[in-house]
Design a protein around this nucleic acid. Structure first.
Lengths: 360, 360
DNA sequence: CCCCTCAATGGAAGCGCTTACAGTCAGGGT
DNA sequence: ACCCTGACTGTAAGCGCTTCCATTGAGGGG
């Protein structure tokens, strides 16, 4: 089934020949067509169309020493969080005429080869969320290409983007306090420099400001099954003590996954949420609003974060210097699980729109 | 802040000079290093490391006439569905040493330019889900590059991949019938060749086989707010009739989004789900298992679908001919919303693992 | 009517890498 | 000692495009 050599097709030479012009003219037609006479341009365009000409990006990249592509390094996406980040990034990139090359951080060994390969084909790279690569790797990349990081610890020479965490976590915790909760625990492992780490800080600040002590800290991984296990553990202790759920009346969770699992399992076991135990999440996932009771959470403008990162990266490639870290505001979404009782039935989020301008 | 011309860095020439060999040897070292003497290879590798050499993918691509990259065209990702598809695809691609270039289908006008650009930088492209591009566009691409489609209508010359829909929809509907439901409606617009279209077909077949007639068909868009609106409409009619929810006792929904919205709104309004009205979804999203009652749905091996598509695409690029469409099995996930009462508390899905071999 | 200007085009030199093809050199066989 | 073999390595010709420098004409001014 001898296919015509894939990835070949007509070149600028064939188009030039067919249009009766030189390759320089064809090239100009495709880049700055204003320098080409209208008649000539049309002839070239016709020829190109007839031949199904597809410009070879590699050749162009080689000639101009720029690939017009941005690289993204992500941990294996799961959940809407990374997807949204990626969408925001892609849309912004494509508006700038830049392609996006994806690299999911795989097993450690293959990782460095993959990153090297990525580097070779892009003009700049964005590291999203820790887990994608360690700081050393990021630093190394930053030495070779403009680099930005999103929702990730700071690294020198790298523009950092975050969704606001600390302040909002503080607000959230204060809100819980206003509801009358006093024995407030935290769920999630606060790795340094991570989002959850910053949320934990805000939580501590709020408690401190109110003269309260942290009631408990469950440093578990931010995943569903850890939440389920923790719920089971708490329920078991409760049974033994015949006591007060280990002296807790509220739990601030590092993300929705954890919170959802806790709410569901606890409620299943007959614990009154939020009456007996208030629980909050973070991320405002779809599930948060379908949970019973509705999960109080925090909405982050993730898509915007991605978009900002892409634009900044493009600017850096264009020669602009590094800038300080950028924080995008997050907002509390109050539902029933914290103790509120919003009359609203099912609020659903507006379509996320990607802002067009960069805000600093 | 005159940065060193980005995207430049040392070339194979500098490495060769530093290692005291010719560029051919450096090149060989990086490709088939078995043809290079061990001492020489080490010298080259050392030099490369010292210089932070990054091979220019564009130059290589130009020389070998192959970019080692696959393109993916997606509608704007939202929800875990596309994310999972993409992850499966990326993992498989990277195992094959191929990069993934992403193109989200944007506004119509910019779309063709974006696709052209994409074509120029990849060896093959995967169209995922309709909405990414119309059939004509796919066909055109297929004439120029090996092409596969995933969860999308068939197009000549394009290898197609689907999650099983019709048979499972039939099973699901039969299941509902076994529960004693007779007046079963369908929710979702069955665009031809779409997944939902195939689900609708299976639903009709089951009814037909049981000698039942479709009780209703609400051809709405497969999105949350359409589900909410439909729920409100049904509730309003119900109030007027003081009657039987327009003669329905079960609703098969085209996807989870629709089903979730219906379940939540109906339950909120005091309708007994599934007692008064059974509802099923499709996709087995996270929310399905956290909904009250749990949403009966269908799990699709989406990541596997993506992986299969990537491998097939690679094979096509390697010269293999087109093959018939491939279907990946889907499985019913029974929860309470259909009338079942699985004792299990909160079942949670196993980590999706990407199968290593292609099954046909 | 000549010269100059400017717009439109063509010629040709790379961009950094791969890969025939052609050497070079050390051994081994005779 | 001579030739052959085979393992390495070097030379150089592109891959398809961009772009600097001409070159060519067609007006316009004097």
């Amino acid at each position: 089934m001898a296919e015509r050599s894939v990835t070949s097709g007509p070149t600028i030479y064939e188009v030039a020949a067919r249009a009766g012009v030189s390759i320089a003219t064809v090239s100009r037609t495709f880049s700055d067509s204003s320098k080409v006479a209208a008649r000539t341009r049309d002839a070239v365009l016709d020829a190109a169309r007839e031949l199904h000409y597809v410009p070879a990006a590699a050749a162009r990249a080689l000639a101009v020493r720029r690939s017009k592509a941005l690289g993204v390094v992500l941990p294996h996406i799961d959940g809407p969080y990374y997807a949204e980040l990626l969408v925001g990034f892609e849309i912004a990139a494509s508006e700038l005429g830049l392609s996006v090359v994806l690299a999911l951080a795989g097993p450690q060994e293959r990782r460095s080869a993959a990153v090297l390969d990525l580097l070779g084909r892009v003009d700049g790279v964005a590291f999203m969320a820790r887990g994608g690569a360690d700081d050393a790797a990021v630093l190394e990349v930053a030495g070779v290409r403009p680099t930005v990081s999103v929702a990730r610890g700071r690294v020198d020479g790298v523009d950092a983007f975050y969704a606001e965490n600390r302040g909002t976590a503080r607000e959230l915790t204060e809100h819980l306090i206003q509801h009358g909760h006093r024995r407030i625990g935290f769920v999630g492992r606060p790795e340094e420099g991570s989002d959850i780490g910053r949320r934990h800080r805000g939580y501590l600040e709020a408690l401190d400001a109110a003269g309260l002590a942290p009631a408990a800290h469950f440093a578990v991984a931010p995943v569903e099954h850890a939440g389920l296990e923790l719920a089971d553990q708490l329920l078991a202790e409760q049974r033994d003590d015949a006591g007060g759920l280990t002296g807790l009346d509220a739990l601030v969770c590092g993300n929705d996954e954890l919170a959802m699992a806790l709410v569901a399992r606890m409620a299943d076991a007959g614990i009154d949420i939020p009456g007996r135990l208030a629980i909050t999440g973070w991320d405002d996932t779809v599930t948060a609003r379908y949970l019973t009771p509705g999960l109080t959470s925090v909405r982050q403008e993730v898509a915007e974060l991605g978009a900002l990162a892409a634009r900044r990266l493009a600017a850096r490639i264009g020669g602009e210097p590094e800038q300080g870290p950028v924080t995008v505001a997050s907002t509390l979404v109050l539902r029933r699980s914290c103790g509120c009782d919003p009359a609203a039935p099912l609020t659903f989020a507006p379509i996320t729109d990607i802002p067009t301008k960069e805000s600093s």
